[in-house]
């Protein structure tokens, strides 16, 4: 799985979450969009669960995306969409 595949998954999950969240800043996101500050804690969980589910569908393996920094605004890997893609790619390369 390459960066483009991960990027596609990330944008698709954000779009799906935003159907309920209806956040204007997430209507046309770019890699520079500051994701974490646009999501409440439940939406962060939705995002993580959505990514984990999509990865499991593709790889038939559970790859844990949540970590002990998930909800920490200073150290979360989900600060921006770009950092999220890079982090997920590193997890897939490491655990997938």
């Amino acid at each position: 799985m390459n960066r483009e595949n991960i990027k596609e998954i990330v944008f698709s999950v954000i779009s799906s979450i935003n159907e309920e969240l209806n956040n204007q800043n997430l209507k046309d996101p770019t890699e520079d969009t500051l994701l974490f500050e646009e999501l409440d804690s439940m939406a962060v969980l939705d995002f993580v669960m959505g990514i984990e589910d999509e990865l499991q569908k593709l790889t038939n393996e559970y790859i844990q995306i949540a970590n002990e920094h998930t909800m920490d605004p200073n150290t979360t890997p989900f600060k921006s969409i770009k950092s999220s893609i890079d982090y997920i790619l590193s997890k897939v390369s490491q655990d997938g």
Binding site: S41, L45, A66, N67, E68, H69, T70, M71, D72
Partner: peptide, 11 residues
């Protein structure tokens, strides 16, 4: 603090 408890649990 739900976020901290979440991080703790995952850890």
């Amino acid at each position: 603090n739900g976020a901290e408890i979440f991080n703790f649990t995952i850890k």
